[in-house]
Computed example of a mutant assay.
Amino acid sequence: MVAALLMLFSRISKSFEMILLGRFLYGYNVGLGLSVHLMYLGESSPKKFRGFLTLTSSIFIGFGKVTGQIIGIKEMMGTEDMWPYLLAVSGIPAILQFAMLLFFPEAPRYLYIDKGDTEGCKKALQWLWQEEDLKQELDDMEQERLSSQGEKAKTVKDVLTSRCVRWQLLTLAIPCAGIQFCGINALYFYAFDIFRQSGVPEGQMHYLAIGIGATELIAITLCSFLIDRAGRKKLMGYGYLLMGITMSLLTAMLSIKDLNSWIPYVNIALIFCVICIYGLGPSGVSMALPADLFLQAWRPSAYVISGTVNWLSMFLVGMLFGYVVDGLGQYCFLIFVAYCIFSAGFMIYFVPETKGKTMLEIMEEFNKINYKNGGNDTERTDITLATKL
């Protein structure tokens, strides 16, 4: 809300510093708020809806993109007079969220496992789900609490160095980096060049951009209905594989774009295909991973790592992509194709499915990989004994 006020009054004050500070505060809020929001959803969701509810964050990110693209066109707020108001629009959802969150309870898993507040947890569950039969979820939380009894909250260093979460960490880091390194931002960048080659008038470009944003939103919405049926592993693994294949085809078509007048239109279709595949798999599913892969004591630090990897990857792509395009042209996509194929192979062949499993069941699946050749390990033994209790 402070950032929105800074944007709103920056032109009156003739201060570009206010814009920079407002942008910094917006970025701070997104970086912190997204991780905390995802953690709250993961700790408040019933097992059968955990994937769907966590994915709603991706849906509203997509909705935010489309909304920004729509109100940013010159017929609405994309004008010389309206730009301070356009930059301040983000303050409106911030006000709504600030007012509504006052009425929300604390996350049930946090209350039950971290605070030991059984009654507070039951009240929170009843308020959130409007259900009376909570035995199954409470039993699941009780098992998780017993498994982590006596454990303190883990630090980022613990997550990075502990053998018992090694494969969970890899399963988290590779897809989170893949959100940026799969080439989706490069595709958005290149899309306008392809539109121009196809003869799209300059004034109509923004409408095609809205179409791309709407395609991503629709695909992510479809993903939310598929995630608890198809599973995370299939959606991400085969999503990355199809993205790699489609971008390989796009690279080949860009290389021969001058041979025929219809080829640029094929390239436009391929762009929409990649966006659709991205929304159906990698974009949405990666948001649900920390809630699925880590127990309560590890989860906050896992979200820190997830957010850091995501934003650092975005920074690297933003800083380096211009030089890559200058050097490689349309062949820049081959770098992203390689990462997509690598991510697909990792997800399909090395990562167990988490669909419909409790936190402890997921942990046991990963323990089989973490300690495959480890013999007797103290850390593993402690966890296994606690799980059996």
Rank of each mutant, 00 (worst) to 15 (best):
A302K: 13
G375E: 04
Y265V: 03
P290G: 13
W262M: 09
I383G: 00
Q97P: 00
L320A: 14
E106D: 14
F181T: 09
A214S: 13
T161A: 02
S255D: 11
D377Y: 07
I210L: 07
N267C: 15
V36M: 15
L102S: 06
M359A: 10
S13W: 09
G374N: 02
M253G: 04
F63K: 02
M77I: 01
S45Q: 05
G374Y: 01
L242N: 07
G231F: 04
I95G: 02
G327W: 10
I92C: 04
G31S: 03
Y303M: 13
Y278P: 14
A186C: 01
E137D: 04
L169E: 09
G211E: 05
S58G: 10
E365R: 07
G239F: 06
T251N: 11
N370L: 12
G279R: 12
S57N: 15
A177V: 00
I12F: 01
M363F: 03
A214Q: 02
G78I: 10
E216Y: 10
G68N: 09
F350Q: 12
I59R: 03
T171E: 01
E75A: 12
G307R: 12
A302T: 11
E119D: 15
L222W: 11
V266C: 12
M319E: 06
M18A: 14
R232K: 14
F24I: 03
N367F: 13
L55V: 08
I71T: 08
C273D: 05
Y190K: 08
G327D: 08
L334H: 07
Q143D: 13
Y188H: 08
V351L: 05
L320R: 02
G33M: 08
G91Q: 07
E144P: 08
N376E: 11
L128M: 12
E131N: 09
S261E: 04
V309C: 10
Q136F: 04
K47G: 03
G150C: 10
